[in-house]
Design a protein around this nucleic acid. Structure first.
Length: 261
DNA sequence: AAGATAAGCAACCGCCAGCGA
DNA sequence: GTCGCTGGCGGTTGCTTATCT
């Protein structure tokens, strides 16, 4: 039996996502939710495979994604879970809020596996092989707080995502209303962050200390959505009647936001 | 300074399970 | 029971960046 392709590949773009594509996907999913990944790119105005859209959203664009260096606790958890679960990355990721299976898998293959190997060699004969590049995650855990975020192009426009707002990485518990000043993004080329003032005007401010409050401040704001919700995509003719979908109306937005379960 | 090499990571591919018709 | 569709998962690839020589 001939396997049906996940999508019609003709004319579909592959490779790295552009900020513009990210904006479209964020805007669409924010407004309508992901009701059908295969159909979604058509309505969102994206020349991408549905799977590619899903992967991009799940691994990088959705709320509550934690980027950056792993803490020692996280690494220990990964190692411990890998011992018991094996390569079941999604199961491991479920125990680490904010981390995706893909990211954990990458981290395992690039750092943790080698670290364990090195440890076992060291334990076996006391020998130490020096890696070509010093890995601060392995050699200096105290540095993990110094630079907690590694930004992609995307983060030029997207705020860091709140980890603690939900125990499940697949949930948005709420869209938090924020106060006078709302952080909406970070300029990766400088130490400035983009914020909105009382008039909803974007201005760059010196980026505040990222330690401590960085992952705990509520910043996933309606103002952020207001910035990036655009009208350059087509609304689906039929939105899901799934009772698991809830919608809210924001005074800051033109229309409703679909909140997925 | 430039080329070689290793490391890191985003993204793709193919398979599989679940579900409804 | 089967077929087709969809979402999800894990393995792998290939590009970019960092480091070494």
């Amino acid at each position: 039996m001939v396997r049906t392709p996940c999508c019609d590949k003709t004319g579909l773009k592959k490779g790295t996502w552009t900020p513009e594509e990210d904006r479209k996907l964020i805007a669409y999913v924010t407004k309508y939710g992901y009701w059908n990944w295969r159909q979604l790119p058509k309505y969102a105005g994206l020349a991408r495979c549905g799977k590619s859209c899903r992967l991009r959203w799940m691994n990088y664009l959705r709320p509550n994604i934690k980027r950056g260096n792993y803490t020692k606790e996280e690494e220990d958890t990964i190692i411990r879970l890998h011992e018991s679960l094996g390569n079941r990355w999604s199961a491991i990721a479920a125990q680490l809020p904010g981390r995706t299976d893909n990211e954990i898998k990458n981290h395992w293959h690039t750092s943790l596996k080698k670290r364990l190997k090195r440890n076992s060699i060291t334990n076996a004969n006391g020998a130490k092989d020096t890696p070509k590049r010093k890995d601060p995650e392995i050699y200096n855990h105290d540095d993990t707080e110094a630079n907690p975020v590694q930004e992609s192009n995307l983060v030029d426009i997207i705020p860091p995502i709140l980890e603690s707002s939900s125990s499940s990485s697949d949930q948005i518990s709420s869209l938090s209303m924020t106060t006078d000043i709302t952080s909406v993004g970070k300029n990766t080329n400088t130490t400035d962050e983009l914020i909105l003032d009382n008039n909803n005007e974007a201005v760059f401010h010196p980026y505040a200390d990222t330690s401590g409050s960085f992952w705990t401040e509520p910043f996933y704001s309606d103002n952020f959505y207001n910035l990036y919700i655009s009208n350059d995509f087509q609304a689906p003719s039929l939105l899901p009647a799934d009772p698991g979908f809830a919608s809210v109306h924001s005074p800051f937005l033109d229309g409703e936001i679909i909140l997925w379960p």
